[in-house]
Write a protein that binds this DNA or RNA. Sequence first.
RNA 1: CGGAGCGUAGCGCAGCCUGGUAGCGCGCUUGGUUUGGGACCAAGAUGUCGGAGGUUCGAAUCCUCUCGCUCCGACCA
Length: 576
Amino acid sequence: MRYSQYLLPTLKETPADAEVISHQLMMRAGMIRKAAAGIYSYLPLGLRSLRKMEQIIREEMNRAGAIECLMPMANPAELWQESGRWEKYGKELLRFKDRKSADFCMGPTHEEVITDIVRNTVNSYKQLPLNLYQIQTKFRDEIRPRFGLMRGREFIMKDAYSFDLEDAGADTSYKKMYQAYRNIFNRCGLKYRSVEADSGAIGGNFSHEFMVLAESGEDGIVSCDSCQYAANVEKAELIYAGIETPAATLELQRVDTPGQKTIEEVAEFLKLSPKQVVKTLIVQTSDDEVLAVLLRGDRELNTIKLANCLDVDWVLLAEDEVVKEVTDAPTGFAGPIGLTIRVIADAEVQGIADFVIGGNAVDVHFVGANLGRDFEVSQFVDIRQAVAGDSCPRCESGKFESWRGIEVGHIFKLGTKYSEAMNATVLDAQGKAQPLVMGCYGIGAGRSVAAAIEQNHDENGMMLPMPLAPFQVMVTLLNPKDDDVREAAEKLYQQMLDLDIEVLLDDRDERPGIKFKDADLIGIPLRVTVGARNLKEGNVELKVRNSGAMSMVPLADISSQVQQLVAEGLAFELDR
RNA sequence: CGGAGCGUAGCGCAGCCUGGUAGCGCGCUUGGUUUGGGACCAAGAUGUCGGAGGUUCGAAUCCUCUCGCUCCGACCA
């Protein structure tokens, strides 16, 4: 491609509404433009990277035995009513009516449509296992779209759905997808972790997320430094084996703590560590229960783990009025003594004696509090957020490291939730109808490209890995008016095209500085500079974008050298 | 949906408080000089000041309503 004939509108300045680096750079590099909040057009350069991501996904899905199809964006309401999600999905589901006033929605995910297809086309266990996927535009009317392609309302997703007769087969399908996902992200050249995840509202009992590691990631993850265990902090288990409660040495004593509300303030006031304080959180569940939760002062409550162990849909910190009602004190002074509601505690609390707790009155705390003696706890459970340094629950010898991650893929074992709701069955070997056991597997294609940029950039621009880079090499023609230089660059360009190298020739009539800045910004992995100065010696300059390495290469050798570097950049090993 | 903020040229912004001919930088067009890291000179073009209503002799500026966008929280690929 010739730059002079391409649409590549780079921006010198960062658009004011772009907050994260990938959004800023994709705007500046002319990859995307915004049409509305959370809705973007891909310009030619952005589309090239997106297509590469899609192609890698496609190849690895195919390799894993999945079959591509394409489902509609406009979904008839009947299917969603049948699964029960027409009512449940809420406002994220964009609904509309056709000219006959029939209800439709834009597909945010396609369990309903695929299940409908499969129940109508698959009748026998002999046709299983089956895994169908598509790469398609999804629409979710997010409450708050943000960060450019990272969280759009309209976005491109690969979604796959597996169908098996039995649970064991579904496990095999799941494992195949897990391997395929590892292959996909390995091939992209991304640093990522596959982590155990909460399966959330989609349901199912087993789930992994694929997290691209980046400082700007919205998710916290922990991984063991000695074994393979890794998990979203929402899910990460902790071990509490052998915790013994130390003997009490102090009497319970009421103390005045004027104006000291936070754990830090109270601990400092009493000249104690926050670890000697036990905080009491008043929470409300989706089942309308209000209960007290005890945690060591320096720990954070993990509401998802709490919701899971209470077997409720969600848990929220109680409103100030509720806190006042149950503790008889404003927020900040809650304590377990004298409460009439259920009190549960994080297991770690068992290991503390003589601690500080709230006094259920303004400016009052208790010191020397002890479990059992001063109050009772109905249950000890694992409900705190994991942090770096915690012991690994699997190998028990390793420690957690913590990372920020961007969720680019998520795989779920669905079970029979949809097949039962929509009566999708096949006949087994005994001629008996069995509900299909399903799995679903998503990858955000656009988000993956954005995540790659979050992970690979510097102050001058993007540094996309070779497999995702929109072009593999940029040939920068410095003096377009110098016939010799132009001819050499044109010849090089043609040579590279003949070698199937994806080359962008910067043949614009611009000053060198502009060309170099643009080249750095759009971050093509290799840059070959053809200029009068070096051409006199028969050389061109090769610069590697991400290492900054520069070398002089004889004109005659450059194409083959580039070809080799491209091949190296695309090489990958399959994870089996 | 709750909280905060912003809408003025393609992009980044000033002007608004204290009402009086709509500005700056970049970009764009033309001509010239330049040409290895975002050049310089000259001449140009570009605006329903987000929209509607109101106050006023007069509104980008004051008032009311409305729409859009961004950021922080609960959701998710």
